[in-house]
């Protein structure tokens, strides 16, 4: 099953943080798409539930040093 994940982070202020988060999240197994919204300080990703979880992505981002304030998931019908 595919899941759409939205993570609300603390305010991002440096554009280079974006690149970091983008490549760290995209590098996880089971992550299909990633999009970092710099101004909204959000990360949107679609993941394969069998391979990874929203909590796992939150942990990856936390480990980079950015607080994850809120995690939202939504099931997506397989296309």
């Amino acid at each position: 099953m595919t899941q759409k994940v939205t993570l609300q982070l603390e305010d991002l202020t440096c554009p280079s943080c974006m690149t970091k988060i983008q490549s760290a999240v995209a590098g996880q197994a089971g992550v299909e798409t990633t999009k970092v919204l710099f101004n909204a300080s959000k990360v949107k990703a679609t993941i394969d539930e069998d391979q990874t979880t929203a909590e796992n992505l939150a942990k990856v981002i936390q480990d980079l040093g950015y607080d994850v304030l809120k995690v939202k998931t939504k099931e997506v019908e397989p296309a």
Binding site: C14, S16, C17, T19, K20, S23, A24, L64, G65
Partner: peptide, 16 residues
């Protein structure tokens, strides 16, 4: 330094 190092890990040469 921490920011610089993290960026370098994902192959980005940053201002830091």
């Amino acid at each position: 330094f921490i920011h610089a190092f993290q960026a370098l890990k994902v192959k980005v040469i940053s201002i830091e």
